[in-house]
């Protein structure tokens, strides 16, 4: 591009830029790359710093003993966290049993049933549900729902008392702060995230598939069953796992309604505890090894949620690629 051509060509145009400009480009590139790398740095730092701090607690019990031990007695320096792991799994799995079908229903309503105008209102409702801070859900649950719902638990326990099996799971209890209440709160908090991903998944179902189902004479429900659900199965599994990860990590709302007893009870109407909730409940009065043990629970929780989230993302992405591959 140097000016060697005809005489009437304009004076030399410098497209290479000066060295300073080139340095600015390099500097900008370094800056944004560093910003991108902070994500990896933060995740790495979380793992390293908290693990180092938690090491004494892990050493005290052994990693295996820490995870599987059933006795939690900070005053005796005994730290077994299995009751909390149990509580976390029970509450978040029950929450998913409630939230996943409801979320799929809402997503179907939004994509298939609702008219354009009502669709907007429903989406707003779900978005609003997502913006309510978890501590406010906890506040309403502990001061309004718990007193109101305790008689209902009592009634249900009496109802299933003659049924073997069920009467062990839903037994008498004198408190409304228990696994079930925590599960209900978690379910409500998980609904917005599962719904939003389920909607994205349903949006990838090809219009031609739906129209084909209708053309064969299918009713709407048969179309949903035959065209939408099979197509979206992988994505829905991923969405449920994301909701599960979110539910397992939820802290404050659960801390307010779970009751806070460290025990393993089959009776879902009895108080329990979860990994995240016990950290919030006991943090203020903890020090020394007790505090290290709480941080160790955090490390365990971090590992579990990262694995679940990672798998969920892989599942969702794979499902997306499969759909795009089949219909592009």
């Amino acid at each position: 591009m140097t000016a060697t051509a005809t005489p009437e060509a304009p004076a030399e145009v410098d497209l290479g830029g000066e060295a300073r400009s080139r340095r600015a480009d390099w500097g900008f590139r370094t800056l944004v790359t560093a910003a991108g790398l902070t994500v990896l740095a933060v995740l790495g730092l979380i793992l390293v710093t908290t693990s180092l701090r938690a090491a004494p607690a892990f050493q005290d019990e052994g990693v295996f003993g820490f995870i599987t031990g059933t006795r939690w007695a900070p005053n005796d320096d005994v730290f077994g966290t299995f009751p909390m792991l149990y509580g976390t799994l029970v509450t978040s799995l029950i929450a998913m049993v409630i939230a996943v079908p409801v979320s799929i229903g809402i997503a179907l309503f939004i994509t298939e049933v609702a008219h354009r105008r009502s669709r907007k209102y429903i989406v707003t409702v779900i978005d609003l549900l997502a913006t309510v801070p978890s501590v406010v859900f906890g506040l309403v649950a502990v001061l309004v729902v718990v007193p109101a719902i305790t008689p209902a638990y009592q009634w249900f326990a009496d109802l299933v008392a003659p049924v073997p099996g069920l009467n062990a799971i839903f037994d008498e209890s004198n408190t409304g702060r228990n696994y079930i209440t925590a599960s209900l709160v978690l379910a409500i908090m998980a609904i917005p995230i599962i719904t939003s991903i389920a909607r994205e998944v349903f949006a990838t179902v090809p219009e031609t598939d739906k129209q084909a189902a209708y053309a064969l004479g299918a009713t709407r429900w048969e179309m949903v069953k035959g065209a939408i659900l099979p197509h979206s199965f992988g994505g829905l599994v991923g969405a449920s796992m994301l909701g599960l990860g979110r539910a397992m990590g939820e802290t404050i709302a659960v801390a307010l309604v779970i009751g806070g007893s460290v025990s393993i009870a089959a009776n879902l109407f009895e108080p329990g505890n979860t990994m995240a909730a016990i950290i919030a409940q006991q943090w203020g009065e903890s020090s020394g090894l007790h505090q290290d043990a709480l941080i160790a629970i955090g490390v365990e929780l971090f590992a579990i949620t990262v694995i679940i989230n990672f798998l969920a993302r892989v599942v969702v992405r794979r499902a997306e690629i499969k759909m795009k591959g089949a219909h592009s």
Binding site: I46, T49, T50, G245, G249, T251, G298, F310, R313
Partner: peptide, 22 residues
């Protein structure tokens, strides 16, 4: 980085608190 940012949105807020505490 994209995948890890997605994973990071799922890290429980209490874990972030513990991390900054330490």
């Amino acid at each position: 980085i994209r995948t890890m940012a997605d994973v990071m949105t799922g890290v429980p807020s209490i874990v972030m608190g513990l991390f900054i505490y330490v």
